[in-house]
Design a protein around this nucleic acid. Structure first.
Lengths: 192, 192
DNA sequence: ATCTTTCCCACCTAGGTGTGAACC
DNA sequence: ATGGTTCACACCTAGGTGGGAAAG
């Protein structure tokens, strides 16, 4: 079955805990950034384009972390957990995606932990998951969080035009298409 | 006196020593990359533009390091050591720089260790210096190297047009001016 | 036929060049 | 007048968008 790649990045902002540090990470807090934006996409079922050479995520997965020990070293690992066993299918012209029951494909579990060039199955739903590991003489898993808001269906082309519209509206790299839309509006208005 | 900034970067390639590592760094080797290119500039006295907001170095300071302990953490620090006490001055139209003796300006020592936005005195000569520090419960200075090939005079505008020509020839971001030169050659040739 | 993937493209963002006029 | 600095600018590099045709 088709396997494509999705470029992903974890951008994190570290906020040192209290001055003396907290070697136990008891008050660890991981917060999703741009949560409002993520929820806009989540509301209409988010999609992410995957390509052979890798594609950036938009919105970008960003978290801020507080409560770590400032004198320790940490690794941040990201993987994508299958959110269901369905192969999603585009039905009716209105652009809604619905789960196609009874055709569960043999899904591989998240391919371990890797920051870039992660293989995903197109038309399957994933939930990004973040691992925080304290690096030392022996590694210690500190946290293991994921956010429902960041779920998405991997696709090779957008299925829901509302998703396309949101991506164009908020991703500066799609500015060209935003301008095009505005020009069309303008022309329509002049014609009117 | 005028102080301007020079953006600098240390790009380094780490080559782990032998499999078992070398916690003593006894066989540490630091090699300057693009040494041939650096020597081309050195041969006619290199200049680097400094600006208020910072300017990249070209050539880029890159080193490859071998003989480190793969299980240790290292920091790479860069500073710029005054190479003499002269204020350099542009003399004769031929574009040569020569030292103006007897006007030594009070030079501050290298401003400690800082990777970006380093303040340099225009018209003074510097030699980049690299520090390698092993990060641990207490830091340990591992190495302290500099390369004569990378000496340069900080300037706010190029003084020697041969330097300008070399920068344009080898820096892809100055391609526009390379093309312009080629066009001029072409027009001259057509006219001829 | 239909669904899905791949490729090339125009059009952006983002930012690194030296130039030359203006400024001090 | 002279020497040095600053600024806006045209022109690049580098690479991220979705569209749409073509292919599978």
């Amino acid at each position: 079955r088709c396997m494509s790649r999705l470029l992903s990045a974890v951008e994190s902002e570290l906020q040192a805990g209290r001055e003396k540090g907290d070697p136990t990470e008891r008050e660890l807090k991981v917060t999703l950034e741009d949560a409002d934006l993520w929820r806009k996409f989540q509301h209409i079922t988010n999609e992410m384009i995957v390509t052979k050479n890798g594609r950036r995520m938009f919105p970008v997965l960003k978290v801020s972390v507080s409560g770590l020990d400032p004198s320790s070293m940490y690794s941040f690992l990201l993987d994508f957990v299958p959110a269901d066993t369905c192969r999603w299918k585009f039905v009716n012209g209105e652009g809604n995606l619905s789960a196609c029951s009874g055709c569960s494909v043999g899904l591989k579990p998240g391919s371990g932990s890797c920051l870039f060039q992660i293989m995903l199955n197109s038309l399957h739903k994933y939930e990004p998951q973040l691992h925080i590991v304290c690096v030392g003489s022996r590694h210690r898993l500190v946290s293991n969080v994921s956010f429902k808001e960041t779920q998405f269906i991997a696709v090779t082309a957008y299925q829901n035009e509302e998703i396309t519209a949101l991506k164009i509206k908020y991703n500066p790299f799609a500015k060209a298409f935003l301008d095009a839309k505005e020009r069309i509006c303008c022309i329509t208005w002049l014609f009117w």
